[in-house]
Amino acid sequence: MKIKMNRFNQTDETDIDELDDSFDEKEYEALEQELTHYLVKFPDENKIDATVDTLRQYVPDRTTKSVSIRERSFALIKRAKTEVTIVSKTYWIASTFLFFIGYLIANQTNTDPILTLIFLAPLPFIFGLSEVFKGREHGLFEMELACKFSAHEIILSRLFLIGIYNLTLNTVLTLVLSPVTGKPLIEMILTWFTPFTFFVAIGLWLSMKFKGQIFVTTLLSLWLVFIVIFVINNHWMVAFLNIHYILHLVFLTAGFLLVGLQLIQFTKKYQTFEGGTRVEINY
């Protein structure tokens, strides 16, 4: 027992020394010699060029040089239909469930229903972002890049899909709650739409900065702290709820501009994507 203990201690301390001892120079050289037999020589330049030239005739011509924006967006919407099956069912169910809970909470008398609406509005989108980048998280991004639809097209159509779903949920909740608040419908929609666009913009920005599930959780925490600050500072809340609708429209356009800017950056980033290094960086 004692000897055994000693041996363990020794290996613990002299880990690197031991490696040096067992390392035999001659053995290494022999191994190297043997491996050179298996070396595959790089083909010379002429051969490569010849192969490329032979293959060139099989490459089809580009038929339509430029597709109009209308057609492109139409194709995007069409593709979104197929994406419905790819986005996981849990997401659809969880988001709907969330809004159901939101409805129950909003019906409690001591909270302002519009507040619940504001806080709930960006949630499905935040969750949905993790679905949008599912391919990226699972290391399938290179494969997506090589597909018929390029990666940014897939991502854009998924974004479109969850955006529409999110807006539908919000609108339904607004319609259901509108008799409770007694406020005009347009005003209610504007109230939740402005923070929503800002959060979408922040979410897109973060999704480009941080890879992985990190950005979803970070975004959620930001959203949470935002709510708490909002609730604690009563006069901020009152001020926000009573903003004139023209100011709302100004903020809304600003929010839309931000979202548009992020989307343009998005396509740029994933369109001219070379090599795996940049996207594969963690965190």
């Binding site: 900065k209 941080f210 990190i214 925490s221 702290v225 965190y283």
Partner: peptide, 15 residues
Amino acid sequence: TRKSLYFAFLLFVLF
């Protein structure tokens, strides 16, 4: 070394 933590922390301090 996780940048997102620093990002979140700085934002909270800003708040």
